[in-house]
Amino acid sequence: MSQPPNIDGVLIQWGDRLFYPGNRIVKNQPQPKLGALAARQRAAAIRERIEATVVRRVPQVMVKVTGGGRGMKAIAAHFRYISKNGRLEIEDERGETMRGKEALRELADDWRFGGSLIEDVSDRREAFNIMLSMPRGTDPLSVQWAAREFAKIELADHKVVMVLHDHQANPHVHISVRAESKHGKRLNPRKTDLHRWRETFAEKLRERGVEAEATRQATRGASRRYPALWQVKAREDGRLLKSPQAATKGVGAQASRDAAQAAWRELAAALAATGREPDLQLARSIEAFAARTPRQAAPDPAHQHTRQQVPVRTGPER
């Protein structure tokens, strides 16, 4: 009786395409050259992510840049908004907590003079506002802990202000980060940074015992598109008239979804070919998942609650 084929190489090859697209270009041959133990571990990690996506449908994290301040007036206004004018607890990058209007004034002064002077109105972005969110039912303190650990890794050497919002449908953390680090290096988040940030946040939630994933929209078959970071910045500055690349982006997004569908098919076929019952079950789950994903996918509902519950504004919250 012939031995079932080794599935590890296929899991790594096509799983990387789905979950770690920056790692390598997928080719039919040769398969990734890893040691036997490393390959087994890598394949096990890929299998876990496949099961989380198509079987357990693990909640997806959201990490979103919601804007940023050009000058201390805008930054201070955002401090007041996320803290409800000092009524909610504020935490800084050192883990120190504070409340009240006086604390807000002292915090604004610390940011204004803690590095290059931040004028009331600046011609450059002096802070970025980030929101980290999980769906309804997630433990708020776990979200706060994961956000804190995320900031230690991804925003190290920057001044940070963090506030937990657990009074709305979904727990989320607002983070304001000073664009200039303590060493004078400026933060400039890009699309690749945002994906890494999602991965880091999800990893920290899992360390806390919370199931969370940071799977790309194309891998999930989702097509909901949020404004690009440059669009957010241009809109804030009153420079956004239209998106000249909208059509091109739509084509590119569909191509990404098509590539993800092809990868799912390769994985399902390879798993089914082993003849082992756990692999057959996983292959059937992949096929059912892919069948629910139309070519022109519907808007992704994973974080619709966040869009509805957390309006992006910097004025006083009513």
Rank of each mutant, 00 (worst) to 15 (best):
E207P: 14
Q217G: 01
T215S: 14
R225G: 01
K233L: 13
A212K: 03
Q217F: 00
V210D: 06
E203K: 03
T215H: 07
L205I: 07
W230Q: 10
A222R: 07
T215M: 10
K204E: 06
T200R: 04
A214Q: 03
E236F: 00
R206S: 03
Q217T: 02
R224A: 12
V210C: 00
T200F: 08
R216W: 06
R216S: 14
R196W: 01
W230V: 01
E199L: 10
V210M: 08
G221A: 07
A228F: 15
G221T: 13
A214M: 01
P227G: 09
E236S: 04
K204M: 03
A212I: 05
R225A: 15
V210S: 02
R198I: 05
R196D: 08
T219P: 06
T200E: 06
S223R: 14
A222M: 14
H195V: 00
H195I: 06
R216D: 13
R220M: 13
H195A: 04
W197R: 01
H195E: 04
R225D: 04
G221V: 12
V210A: 02
Q217E: 07
L229I: 14
R196K: 04
Y226G: 09
A228W: 12
R235E: 15
A234S: 15
F201I: 07
Y226I: 11
R225M: 13
R206H: 04
G209K: 03
H195Q: 07
R206E: 09
A218Q: 15
R224T: 13
A234R: 13
R216P: 14
A222W: 14
T215K: 02
F201A: 09
L229S: 13
R220H: 09
Y226C: 05
A214D: 09
E213R: 01
A214S: 08
W197Q: 05
H195M: 04
W230E: 10
W197C: 02
E203S: 04
E199I: 08
